[in-house]
């Protein structure tokens, strides 16, 4: 291949298309009293941002959560509330 041909290559990085905290409308808030740690929320999370916190309960990364609400809709114990974002 001639050396003057450049093949554009993208490199993996978080926030390739930006963070979501700026435009998210609703955010999921997990009620630990109702959560039974079945992890269905994390299974279906499209952004893969629900992880196990230090106390063993799910924690949402709000920098990247898009607020779609699939976790809240699928949660069998309805432990997740979709709360409107409030801007100062």
């Amino acid at each position: 291949m001639p050396s003057d041909i450049v093949i554009p290559v993208s490199n993996p990085a978080e926030a390739a298309a930006g963070q979501t905290g700026l435009w998210r409308v609703f955010k999921p808030v997990i009620d630990k009293g109702k959560c039974v740690r079945c992890w269905v929320c994390a299974l279906y999370c499209m952004e893969d941002v629900i992880d196990e916190g230090p106390d063993g309960y799910p924690v949402v990364d709000y920098e990247f959560c898009k607020g779609c609400g699939i976790c809240a809709n699928e949660c069998p114990t309805k432990a997740i509330d979709m709360v409107p974002e409030v801007r100062e």
């Binding site: 978080e14 926030a15 298309a17 992890w39 279906y44 952004e47 893969d48 941002v49 699939i70």
Partner: peptide, 25 residues
Amino acid sequence: VMDLRRGPKYVLPGSAACPGCGAQI
């Protein structure tokens, strides 16, 4: 099935998918 939530992330957070995208799941 629960292994589908664990482990390394190959699709990194912060993609350009619409919220609620079925394809990304």
